[in-house]
Design a protein around this nucleic acid. Structure first.
Length: 572
RNA sequence: GGGCCCGUAGCUCAAUGGUCAGAGCAGACCGCUCAUAACGGUUUGGUUGGGGGUUCAAGUCCCUCCGGGCCUACCA
């Protein structure tokens, strides 16, 4: 038994996430957490909403709510949707928590004491009409390079030229449209990442077996141009964690807050503390997961995230932890994902293109989405959601292969023997062959799950389901009924034990259907992971009662698929 | 502009430099009748994007060209 710490990248508070966000971090993290729990490890699975920053303030203003209320409401919405997808977080925290405020201020104090914080006077664009400094992205104007009129202050999306806000012709606020802008001086804290470059590189270079996607992005940032740059960790905003040195004020930084990307990863730790608080576990309760000097030495920590998050998790956050000169637990493995596209293009919130998490759950139960998304997770390159692929995948794998297997064996037993495992007969060569096949597949499945090779694991699981249909076809109990009812009984027993085995093995992917299978067999979710295929085939004895379950997975027909395609095609 | 990733069967993807490049889906044929018109078996299908090189041996390594995607630090 090991101790496994798992974090998923934090979903931003602003709005409901689409399927691409789900599949890029939370869902595979949940798969890993569920598997590790099933194997008897002590697992702590942490996620939270990332609540600070300009977009949250603007979204709250648009909704006509104070930002704190807006965030509280959206946290609830995201939590309910996460529950709907059966994301098994041990704690779903909030980066606006008091725990995170204290920890973030603590890290700032430590970094300052270590000489890793510079105070830098910056010149930034201020909008009088909006009463706020504008991030580069929120300044629009005409591109000096191509004349595009809606170029943003950081980059022109028409000609892709990198810009500085002061390059723009006729700059205006993207928020209000106001042209009453001026450049003001404002002081900010910079994290001296450049000073930690060698240290970070050594660390990255000694990580073994990390995905290329993870290390290549990290190296690019370490080596690009003049190398890793210092990074501003504060902002002129109202909504955020006040800049302080621990509990003490930070002279000259009054009224400023930490940048979301500084405080968001710290929330991984803070959320663990929130979890410990909620369970009355005290300070030790969370520190044993995060402090190498207080018990975290044997923790294996894995982070899940989309590729856009990699620089912050490979560089900025480790720099924060290392720079504190305290023995904080560093990540052991970063599993990063590419993007999921929608019908050949990008998911788009603004044009209503693609499926969002709340809509998905209205259409079909969580398991359908979990299965398709995980078995098509963008592991080695971007992948594409299409309704055709989704329909084909869930109909074939879930309805035809798994669902129909459960259906045929339970119904056959009910009509010939009644709703209890029948007695008689002894396993023979067919059963030995089945056990051998299952052993091979199970080893493959376990290896892939341990290595977090998600697609491969899904393939292995599917092959295990297929093995049941192959076995029934070979053993043909419907034929044996005539000549040897006892042998048929033994085959049916074996088949019903396969249902139990499938429920246990499939639970990380499709927890609800697995639960329904266990319930039908009169079992609970406490059924242990199989010791061996042979043992699993004889786990339930003759006489064990069951109920014939309803159809586990209904099929998605062409008519409905076409309607869904049309509904989510977007405005333009 | 710079960097990274990818290009393999009609589609989605596999293949520590080493047997005849393999799976699933789709297609074709056969079987089965327990089951959600489901299941099983057999089978068609490849100049591994083009060209050059290294090697006893290249889908894999190197060069180059073509095509696609992503990142590029103030969206998060």
């Amino acid at each position: 038994m090991a101790r496994i710490l798992i974090t998923s990248a934090l979903p931003y508070i602003n709005g409901i996430k689409h399927l691409g966000n789900l599949v890029g971090s939370q869902l595979p993290a949940d798969l890993h957490a569920r598997y590790m729990r099933a194997r008897g490890h002590e697992v702590l699975f942490i996620c939270a909403t990332d609540e600070h920053g300009t977009p949250a303030e603007l979204a709250a203003a648009k909704a006509g709510e104070p930002v704190a209320e807006y965030c509280a409401r959206m946290w609830r919405v995201q939590k309910d949707i996460a529950d709907g997808f059966r994301l098994s977080f041990d704690h779903f925290g909030r980066s606006s928590s008091d725990r995170n405020r204290r920890l973030t201020q603590h890290f700032a104090e430590r970094l300052s004491a270590a000489g890793l914080i510079d105070e830098v006077m910056e010149r930034q664009v201020y909008s009088k009409a909006d009463g706020r400094f504008l991030p580069d992205r929120y300044i629009e104007g005409t591109c000096p390079n191509c004349g595009y009129e809606k170029a943003r202050g950081d980059q022109c999306e028409n000609c892709t030229k990198q810009l500085d806000p002061t390059d723009l012709i006729n700059p205006r606020s993207a928020i209000s449209g106001s042209t009453d802008l001026e450049v003001r001086e404002t002081k900010h804290l910079h994290l001296r990442q450049s000073a930690m470059r060698a240290h970070l590189r050594d660390w990255i270079d000694t990580r073994e077996g990390w995905p290329v996607l993870t290390t290549s992005i990290a190296r690019k940032w370490l080596d690009d141009g003049e190398g890793l740059q210092d990074r501003s960790i504060t902002r002129d905003l109202d909504w955020g964690i006040p800049v302080q040195k621990g509990e003490k004020p930070w002279p000259g930084m009054e009224g400023k807050v930490f940048y979301v990307w500084f405080d968001a990863p710290i929330e991984y730790i803070a959320a663990t503390a929130e979890w410990a608080d909620a369970h009355g576990l005290g300070e030790d309760g969370w520190r044993r997961w995060w402090r190498a000097d207080e018990g975290a030495g044997d923790v294996r920590y894995t982070q899940f995230m989309g590729k856009d998050n990699v620089p912050f998790h490979t560089l900025s956050f480790p720099a924060t932890l290392m720079g504190s000169a305290e023995p904080w637990k560093l990540v052991d493995y970063i599993k990063s994902f590419n993007y999921l596209n929608y019908e050949g293009g990008k998911f788009s919130t603004s044009s209503g293109r693609g499926v969002f998490m709340d809509q998905a759950l209205e259409i079909l139960p969580a398991d359908y989405w979990r299965w398709w998304l995980l078995s098509n997770v963008p592991e080695s390159s971007d992948s594409d959601f299409t309704w055709e692929s989704f329909q084909n995948g869930v109909n074939k794998d879930l309805a035809d292969v798994l669902g129909n297997f459960v259906s045929r064996i339970t119904k056959f037993c009910r009509s010939r023997f009644g709703e209890a495992l029948p007695e008689g007969g002894a396993p023979g060569p067919e059963e030995a062959e089945l056990a051998a096949e299952l052993s091979r597949r199970l080893a493959e499945y376990e290896r892939a799950m341990e290595a977090i090779e998600v697609r491969r694991a899904a393939q292995a699981l599917r092959a295990i389901w297929v093995a049941g249909n192959e076995y029934l076809q070979r053993a043909a109990p419907w034929t044996k009924m005539k000549e040897s009812p006892e042998e048929a009984a033994m085959i049916v027993r074996t088949g019903l034990n396969l249902v139990r085995l499938y429920a246990i093995l499939s639970r990380p992917f499709i927890p609800d259907a697995a639960g329904a299978m266990l319930t039908a067999l009169g079992l609970t979710e406490n059924e242990p992971w199989p010791e061996s295929a042979e043992a699993a085939l004889a786990a339930l004895p003759s006489g064990h009662a069951f109920t014939t379950p309803d159809v586990l997975f209904a099929k998605l027909d062409d008519e409905r698929r076409e309607a869904l395609e049309a509904r989510f095609a977007g405005k333009g």
